[in-house]
């Protein structure tokens, strides 16, 4: 049987990349720095944002909340009196386990981009898919909690390699866990040598100031590598 080949030679995620570039252009036009915050479910993304976005000196912040369902996280962020938009992937996006560029694009008209300096995009909790889908962000940051175990960088290298900053959260739990922090950091360096990391506790506030300073630098586009 004869075969008719059509050459495609196209990256599978090209279509997403095109929309991500359009989002990025919108962010740049409005002079907004976009940070894509990723983690496993329950790593503490929202709690960390509650801790860190309050009184962020001189920086006007907005938040885009990604979840499969519910507005629980958006409600929590709304208490900070910052503009927040919830994207639920369940209705309309097939319950996707991550945000993609198109979902973010659909939410942009609801955000006052011209009045913002920083947009934090809190991705759906998942250690795999969000790493594959760029949404137009300038920076990718992940939260990795010590409760998840020290082997996670080795198991999910795609995610740990995708981000430029790792927030090692829940360090207040270290005395109660069989978690070897040195081994974790070795594992992190094995998959992403030299990646910037901050040890934080969203609960006690330890280390959060350094993360806030990172956000301010990112928002003012100073000294944070793009």
């Amino acid at each position: 049987m004869h075969r008719t080949y059509v050459k495609v030679l196209e990256d599978v995620l090209d279509a997403n990349g095109t929309i991500a570039a359009a989002n990025r252009a919108d962010f740049d036009r409005a002079d907004v720095t976009a940070v894509n915050l990723m983690s496993a479910p329950g790593a503490g993304k929202t709690t960390l944002l509650e801790r860190s976005l309050r009184w962020l000196e001189g920086v006007r912040v907005g938040v885009l909340e990604g979840d499969v369902a519910s507005t629980l996280d958006a409600d929590r962020i709304a208490h900070l009196h910052v503009p927040v938009v919830q994207i639920d992937t369940d209705p309309g996006f097939g319950g996707e386990c991550h945000l993609d560029a198109n979902m973010v694009r659909s939410a942009l008209p609801s955000l006052p981009l011209d009045e913002l300096d920083l947009l934090v995009i809190e991705n759906v909790g998942n250690l795999v898919c969000p790493a594959e889908f760029r949404v137009g962000e300038h920076h990718r940051v992940m939260v990795s909690s010590v409760a998840e175990g020290e082997d996670k960088p080795l198991k999910y290298p795609l995610m740990f390699r995708a981000c430029e900053l790792v927030l090692v959260n829940k360090i207040d739990l270290l005395p109660h866990l069989d978690f070897d922090l040195d081994r974790y950091l070795q594992n992190l360096d094995a998959v992403h040598p030299g990646v910037e990391r901050l040890l934080v506790s969203a609960k006690t506030g330890e280390g959060v100031e350094a993360w806030r300073e990172w956000l301010v630098r990112a928002a003012t586009r100073e000294a944070v590598p793009a």
């Binding site: 080949y5 495609v8 196209e10």
Partner: peptide, 10 residues
């Protein structure tokens, strides 16, 4: 992660 080609023949 690339689609190299497709076969649409016959």
């Amino acid at each position: 992660f690339m689609v190299e080609s497709i076969d649409v023949g016959g």
